[in-house]
Design a binder for these strands. Structure first.
Lengths: 200, 200
DNA sequence: ACTCATTATTGAGTCCAGTCAGTTTACGTC
DNA sequence: GACGTAAACTGACTGGACTCAATAATGAGT
């Protein structure tokens, strides 16, 4: 028998494989039809598992969306952080962090809004939820770091300012009023607000 | 026959009376058990109407909560506006507007959070929803008026600042992290954030 | 008083997220 | 390689929001 596995058991492998199938199925279906128009049954069928099994891997449909999308947001944050380093002025650097996240969120508007809803109103003890919150935390840290870096003369606590920026992003992306906005317009809208927080 | 009615028809009266019964039933049940633990069936039963009838008056359970709570928020806003007039400094005046709204929201935490969720993610074409949005709009106007009143040297557009304050309130009240906070602590948390927007 | 179009009401029925008692599978032990 | 048992899986079932075809009430016209 060839040495196929590092991890000890078949159990672990099966579990991982199932999780992969679920992730793949959900990713595909959510992308094509939107969270709201996909039933958990469809996902289970596509992943070729029983109805109940699905909920062993994600306790709710919302958690399932977080599971599927967290990686994208983490990547967006990564890109934004890198871009920000190349930019001198604070506002520009902050927007460099903001933009990829907004783009990620708007890949599919309904899914994006659902994601935000889950983040704020979902159960924070669930694993994928807390992963999402962690990404938000890292985003705020990245922004705070930019503000600190640029010595903004102690207008206020950088962490608090970052928190406000986070709130601005959330509400701007989630608001139904903005649901029709193009990405660029939304980014501009957010920029206008943030510019009040970062004096020149 | 005594002159019982100003409005022309029996139809209108019946409808109004039914709406009153629904409002009363929902108010009572929501207050006692919380939105999440009350079924639409219970409300219909208590209001003594058919299951389907309920949804002619409020299209979703969320709308029902808005119907029940909007009046309270409008009243809170009214109080806050009045209080604000008696206060000189901008931050204090803004907080005078903020506090009653937070108090109203925290009367029952779960209901408060559900209300916020409905506001941001509900269907804005529904009547009670747009009423709620109108209250938010008025709140922002009241805050903008305070900022304008106090000539804050053109730090930025008052309307935009008001919008940011609104976002701060929303996220602070809705965040699950803050769900355990006492009203006073929550108000303080919000105050800390707002103080960064209102230089002295 | 009667007709009839319009509007309001109704509750049995649909849909779907999520549960749970029962079954299967993996794996350590003898 | 048979046994025990713990972990994983399953799909029939439940609960609850919401729908809709059928029915009832209203009131305008005659």
């Amino acid at each position: 028998m060839p040495v196929t596995s590092q991890p000890p058991g078949r159990r672990e492998r099966n579990k991982q494989e199932k999780l992969d199938r679920i992730t793949a199925a959900a990713t595909e279906l959510f992308a094509e039809y939107g969270v709201e128009d996909v039933t958990t049954q469809q996902i289970a069928d596509k992943a070729d598992i029983g109805t109940g099994t699905l909920f062993l891997y994600a306790k709710t449909k919302g958690e399932l969306l977080l599971l599927v999308q967290n990686a994208n947001y983490a990547e967006a944050l990564q890109r934004g952080r890198a871009d920000a380093e190349t930019i001198r002025d604070a506002l520009g650097a902050v927007m460099a962090v903001v933009r990829p996240i907004v783009e990620c969120n708007r890949t599919q508007i309904d899914n994006g809004r659902f994601y935000l809803r889950e983040m704020v109103f979902g159960d924070p003890t669930e694993p994928h939820h807390s992963a999402a919150l962690s990404i938000v935390g890292q985003t705020e840290e990245a922004i705070a770091a930019i503000l600190d870096r640029d010595e903004l003369g102690g207008v206020g606590d950088a962490a608090t300012t970052a928190r406000i920026i986070s709130a601005i992003m959330f509400v701007s992306m989630a608001a139904s009023v903005n649901a029709g906005l193009e990405i660029e317009a939304l980014v501009q809208d957010i920029r206008t607000q943030i510019s009040l927080l970062i004096p020149r």
